[in-house]
Nucleic acid binder design. Structure first.
Lengths: 110, 110
DNA sequence: ACTATTAATCGTAAAATTACGATATATAAA
DNA sequence: TTTATATATCGTAATTTTACGATTAATAGT
């Protein structure tokens, strides 16, 4: 197998999982943090900042772009990447579906 | 390959990714939502609630237990699972490392 | 002790993920 | 136009993830 049975779940549940998956690798966390750390865009120095090979970083950037968390603009020979502001907020909203569930009633058992 | 190079990243970055990974499957989201939906603990009817095979659910429960988001207590022949209140809050705190970064300055480029 | 019930574990197949060398592409600079 | 530079894509290997049938373990009830 290896295939997630998305049809068994609601659209929302799949969406939450999809967003969480985008954040489920330390390299992608590092990339996002780096993009946040500099006010303006950054180009390809992500590769030197993180210690992974260039194709690997390119692959992670693609994943982040696919889910919409970042966007990239060609600038000469290099590409400028930055956080996609609106989608970032949408992602936070999506994740809050599960993260902001009420925790007050629990822990009275087990 | 297929191995994440954790040594290239900070402890915090690995932790954030690890927590996100726990949420990166719709079945696990569904399980957590279900555990939240009922005030008291729930036992094995998670299997019938979600349409996956019993060993599959058991596997997902184990993952959630391993990262500490849920706990389980044996009660007769069945097992009672519930959200681990304290660890749930810790997880939210860990994720806020990335989720609560300031978004005001961005989107002026790209 | 035997039987039924519930959940965990084992074994395994299919698919997805991670990583990177090699190569292709695209732009700038000479 | 040739050369240099930056990034994407291709191909591929190792590993991990997802899923489930079969089996085991553990407890309750008879």
């Amino acid at each position: 197998m290896g295939v997630t049975k998305t049809e068994k779940f609601t659209e929302k549940q799949n969406q939450v999982a999809r967003m969480a998956k985008a954040l489920a690798h330390p390299a992608r966390i590092a990339i996002l943090e780096y993009l946040f750390s500099i006010d303006s865009c950054v180009c390809g120095d992500i590769v030197s900042k993180i210690g992974l090979a260039q194709p690997t970083i390119s692959q992670h950037l693609k994943e982040l772009k696919t889910v919409g968390l970042i966007k990239g603009n060609v600038e000469g020979t290099s590409v400028c990447y930055c956080i996609h502001h609106d989608n970032w907020l949408l992602m936070k909203n999506t994740l809050s579906t599960i993260l902001d569930l009420d925790t007050r009633h629990i822990d009275n058992c087990c």
